[in-house]
Design a protein around this nucleic acid. Structure first.
Length: 579
DNA sequence: CGGACAAGCTGA
DNA sequence: CAGCTTGTCCGG
């Protein structure tokens, strides 16, 4: 019995009353008296020998079905891997409402669920190959439909298919259903999933309750939504990788731009289509080098952009991310953006006037690394002003879209401008323009390059107004040779990954190493108790957080698990997104 | 988490 | 020293 009380990470023994015997198994959710009150709990073992001298109380009530035994073990593993509590993972693996009984299976067990003929697709052979191995990373371009991958998994039996959003899952589920696949769409259809069927869902569906999983697929594996923001900061990709490994079934990660974590995990098993096929799945990319413009034109809009916007045959989406506080500095003479000579992050001007790298701390005097000039200028414009300026340039209405605009009430227009949110809310476009991608490329976050690449992929998906390969992606930059932009231009994400791998090696950032951030009031006590185990490096504190680094997760998580949790608020983020 | 109980503080 | 607050411990 493991109580569903966040502060108690300990199991207790209870008696199972005779008349409840047939309802209680490992995973069952029950209510028990604990220390004078009733709490929810999971049965995590049965037939145990109680410690001597303890008077056992009976279980008070059976709530209903819970996760199957393999998920209880997986939750224990996740508690170690992300330094969290087993109960918080079991909560994710459990139904929202009590499930007193399960529906009857819709088909008589065994055998694959699919009855339809295969869907012909350019990527058929790659997909077939992916499922012949334990692990593969399948790099399919932005325009590729991932449905055939899900269908191929479903052919193997009770497959688990993760999509980055609930709406993507709700789109994919019925498609599989129309092909004759027995599908449970999570989180709504928990009971059907528990009985056993192909399960489709987003992050939390990594904990889909089928007892036997036949194959695992993660679509758009690079998407950061797969990681939980609150501690424990578990990652759905890593949970299903472990789940597939334990079950001994194939795990296929699909993405136009696989993460370094995925590439490292696949250990060379990266499947890509031919260069020609991959190029076909990317839009035409126009890189506009903003350094080459006449000095008077300091605004956000290059001549090429204005021309493309006016001449676009359909919807135009302009992206201007002004989130984050980072100021971007550029040379007043040649327009080159200031960046660190070691790690390529952007540099900020410190109080003493020197340039300091936000990422690795390298400092240098104010001097342009390209032309030697010593005068810099500040680049910044917000979305609201950009809308007014665009309207004046376009001589037609321009609609502003930000995180707090709702997709339903979006006024019809040909031209939209907004933050990243505009890429979620406008369904398709003939032209997607990134007005200032440098802000993303040089953001002081160690995953900035991968995040910028993900943004370009989102943009690429919008282009073409539905017609494949018809769209244009226009990118304004002062860093036209940046690997991320070259990767998009050449439809070759491997270029960005290779360069990023080198950078991570230099900085010793994940996935080259394993990191955890420790913060909040109890952090000093935690760090004190952690000490200095072999192979583990403790850095900080900075911004009231310590960083703990180890060569790999086994060493890191073992070291963290050996610490008895001090009282008080403590936040341990394993694999922090921001450091 | 939240109840139990112990130790510390206050006012008559 | 009752009555109350604050802190620490522990749960079957």
């Amino acid at each position: 019995m493991l109580p569903d009380v966040p502060a108690i990470d300990k199991t207790f023994d209870y008696l199972v009353p005779e008349q409840l015997g047939d309802q209680v198994r490992v995973g069952t959710m029950v209510r028990v008296e604990l220390h004078g009150r009733r709490v929810g709990a999971w049965v995590v073992a049965d037939g145990v020998e109680p410690p001597p001298g303890v008077a056992l109380r009976p279980i008070a009530k059976v709530t209903g079905w819970g996760p199957p035994e393999p998920l209880i073990d997986l939750a224990r593993w996740a508690a170690w891997r992300w330094c969290g509590r087993t109960a918080s993972f079991l909560g994710t693996a459990s139904p929202d409402h009590a499930v007193p009984g399960l529906p009857r299976p819709t088909r008589s067990g065994g055998g694959p669920a699919v009855v339809v003929s295969p869907v012909p697709d350019d990527h058929d052979e790659l997909i077939r190959l992916a499922f012949t191995r334990d692990r593969s990373v399948l790099r399919l371009p932005p325009a590729a439909d991932s449905y055939p991958v899900a269908l191929a998994a479903a052919r193997l039996g009770n497959a688990l298919v993760l999509a980055p959003s609930v709406s993507a899952a709700r789109h994919l589920g019925p498609r599989l259903r129309r092909a004759g696949v027995d599908v449970a769409i999570l989180p709504r259809e928990w009971a059907a999933a528990r009985v056993g069927s192909v399960c489709v869902g987003s992050r939390a569906a990594a904990w889909a309750p089928m007892a036997d999983v036949a194959a695992v697929v993660v679509l758009d594996e690079h998407d950061e939504v797969y990681q939980e923001e609150r501690a424990p900061t578990w990652h759905a990709r890593d949970v299903v990788i472990e789940r597939a490994r334990r079950a001994g079934v194939p795990c296929v990660l699909v993405s136009p731009t696989p993460s370094l974590e995925a590439i490292q995990w696949a250990d060379g098993a990266l499947l890509t289509p031919s260069r020609a096929t991959e190029r076909e799945g990317w839009p035409i990319v126009d890189l506009v080098d903003r350094r080459r413009e006449e000095p008077g034109r300091a605004g956000l809009y290059s001549e090429r952009f204005v021309k493309a916007m006016r001449e676009a045959p359909g919807t135009v989406v302009c992206v201007l991310n002004r989130k984050g506080r980072s100021r971007l500095l550029a040379c007043a003479r040649c327009g080159e953006a200031t960046r660190c000579e070691h790690c390529s992050s952007s540099m900020a001007q410190s109080d003493d006037g020197r340039l300091v790298c936000r990422s690795c701390g390298t400092a240098r005097p104010v001097v342009c690394q390209a032309c030697g000039a010593t005068t810099l200028k500040n680049l910044r414009v917000g979305v609201t002003r950009a809308r007014e300026e665009l309207e004046a340039l376009a001589r037609e209405p321009v609609v502003e879209v930000t995180g707090d605009t709702s997709a339903q009430s979006l006024p019809p227009a040909r031209i939209y401008v907004g933050t990243e949110a505009v890429l979620h809310q406008v369904p398709s476009a003939a032209l997607v323009a990134f007005l200032d991608i440098d802000q993303e490329l040089l953001a002081p976050r160690y995953r900035a390059a991968e995040q910028a690449m993900a943004l370009l992929v989102r943009g690429a998906r919008l282009t073409g107004d539905g017609r494949r390969g018809d769209g244009r992606l226009l990118v304004q930059t002062r860093l036209p040779h940046h690997e991320v932009l070259q990767a998009a231009l050449l439809a070759d994400p491997g270029r960005a990954a290779d360069a990023e791998w080198e950078r991570r090696r230099f900085l010793r950032f994940p996935p080259v190493t394993a990191l955890a951030a420790v913060g909040s009031v109890a952090a000093p006590a935690f760090i004190d108790a952690l000490g200095h185990p072999a192979g583990v490096e403790v850095m900080g504190p900075s911004d009231d957080r310590w960083l703990v680094r180890a060569p790999d997760h086994r060493i890191l998580c073992d070291a963290l698990a050996a610490v008895t949790r001090p009282p008080g608020r403590l936040r341990v983020e394993v694999d922090p997104l921001r450091i």
